[in-house]
Simulated assay, not measured.
Amino acid sequence: MTQWLIYCRFNKPLIAQLQRTADAAIKNRVEPEPAQTESLATALTQADSQLCDNIRQLLFQQRVFLRANLRLTDLARLLEVPEYRISRLLRSQFHASNFNQFINTLRIEHAKTLLSDPDKGHWPVVVIGLESGFASVGPFTRSFKTMVGYTPHEFRQTVHCREQ
């Protein structure tokens, strides 16, 4: 990759020529017939629908979001699709601003469940964070406070006060 970047930096005239060639090819492209476009859109929609189902399966049933340091690349590798497709569907179908925000939302919801569970009341906050997929307590506490408005400890106290 580094070699390619160096090559591009020192061969700008060649890159400009390639760009002009690509632009000309796009302008001269033959548009498909409307019937072809509709069947292509249907196939794409079915493929995206299947991919959405696969994403739901991985995230909600297999609970992959609980893996520490989960990245979009990991999800793409598991689903055997390009990252951009997952990213696009997360924005359009799951209403997420980005992958990390979406995963952290799922993790915080899981942490809220654990913090509310009286059987896990003796678990330290760090353990709740680790069990929820965060790599350490700092990012867990910051994300939790940003999304919920309380620290995990304050949330636990609030929930337990309501129960009594």
Rank of each mutant, 00 (worst) to 15 (best):
E38M: 13
T37I: 14
P124C: 03
N28F: 04
S39A: 12
V125S: 05
D23F: 07
H153M: 12
V126N: 11
K12C: 08
L106K: 01
T42G: 08
V125K: 03
R88K: 12
P124W: 06
T158A: 11
H160C: 07
V127K: 12
L51S: 00
Q93V: 04
L70F: 03
I128H: 04
F134M: 00
M1E: 11
E163H: 13
K112V: 01
P32D: 05
Q61H: 12
T2M: 14
A22R: 13
V125T: 10
F140D: 02
K145Q: 13
V64H: 06
G133T: 01
P152C: 01
D48F: 08
E163R: 15
Q36W: 04
R29F: 08
D53V: 05
I26N: 05
V81W: 01
I55K: 05
A22D: 13
M1L: 08
Y7I: 03
P32S: 06
N100D: 08
E131F: 02
N100A: 09
E83K: 13
A111K: 00
P124F: 06
I86G: 01
T146K: 14
T113A: 15
P13I: 09
R56L: 08
K27Y: 04
S132E: 00
M1C: 07
A68Y: 00
G149P: 01
P34L: 06
Q36S: 10
Q62R: 11
G129P: 00
A47L: 12
L18F: 10
L78P: 01
